[in-house]
Design a binder for these strands. Sequence first.
DNA 1: AAAGTTGCTTACTTACTAGTAAGTCAATAT
DNA 2: ATATTGACTTACTAGTAAGTAAGCAACTTT
Lengths: 183, 183
Amino acid sequence: METQEKLVALADRMIRMQGYNAFSYKDLSGPMHIKNAAVHYYYPTKANLGVAVIDQTIREINQSKQRWADLPVDQQLEQFAQLYARDHEAELVCLMGSLAPDYRTLPETMQAKVQQMGEEILDWLTDCITKGREQGLFHFKGDPYDRALLVISTLLSALLLARVLGGDTFQRMYRQLLADIMV
Amino acid sequence: METQEKLVALADRMIRMQGYNAFSYKDLSGPMHIKNAAVHYYYPTKANLGVAVIDQTIREINQSKQRWADLPVDQQLEQFAQLYARDHEAELVCLMGSLAPDYRTLPETMQAKVQQMGEEILDWLTDCITKGREQGLFHFKGDPYDRALLVISTLLSALLLARVLGGDTFQRMYRQLLADIMV
DNA sequence: AAAGTTGCTTACTTACTAGTAAGTCAATAT
DNA sequence: ATATTGACTTACTAGTAAGTAAGCAACTTT
């Protein structure tokens, strides 16, 4: 992996570990044994770097979607949920969970990207849930879009609450979420 | 209201609008037309101020609980949810939603308080939900504690997601949440 | 061989951060 | 009348933030 890719990966980690406003260029330059200005060489502003992190995440999500395309939708949902389980093991929150509280302080370029990311995840989930109900794999009351909101909501805040409450908070929420929707 | 109380109220607003790491003493001293050092007079460190904000929130929650003590538990839950609806109208996230992502960067005194706040809310909600099921007012699968986690989770992330996705995101989630648990 | 180009470093600026020490001034207590 | 306290202000420090300008060595292109 080259410097530029490593920078994005490390920035992603920092954002999801500490928050966008709580990390600085020295948190990247230090561990990578380069100078502060070298980070500015690749990403002139922190906003550029932030956008790159979100873009990378959007790409990764799209790759996952494609990889799962041939699975039954209940397994697709489970794979999606396991993405969050892996974040939990790494003691990271998801990008949306980290950036949403800081949304008002983010540069506009980043705000737009965060929104795009949210909409793309939500559209896919809505689709997944709609099909699952049609196929008798899921069952729930109400609009699939609203259900998709609750699914994201649960996974996102399971990561947040587990951070504070510790213990088996994440696992409990994870299990209950799937139990609620699976037949 | 006196200076000290105003400081806590304003700090609370700033934390829930921008995040703990994105506000500074000048954000308080400026609007209050006092000097930076006057803030340090009341709260020597930012951690002191942070703890005061959480303590105040815990006190307010306990007052609400007491006020609702004689209501039927389904109305208690609705009142609780309306607390979040009011935050949404004020374009604020809840304190937990703001502080949980930054948890790792918070001074230990604040971490302990955030945890305490979470546990107190959760205990009350668990109790409320348990009673509601016993009385046939609520109905849901699984452990009441897990259900309480999902209720908080939904309200917390409804505020976060509404910030990014806008529109009627909050109302949709709010409605679906209550529809899911109310008979 | 000369002229870019890439990937940095050195050295710096400007702005802001939390935090402190000492002083002021009005109200209160003795 | 004097001392003390409360609520600040003035003036500062040390550290960190993002960001920039200029230079340099290695490699590539012409």
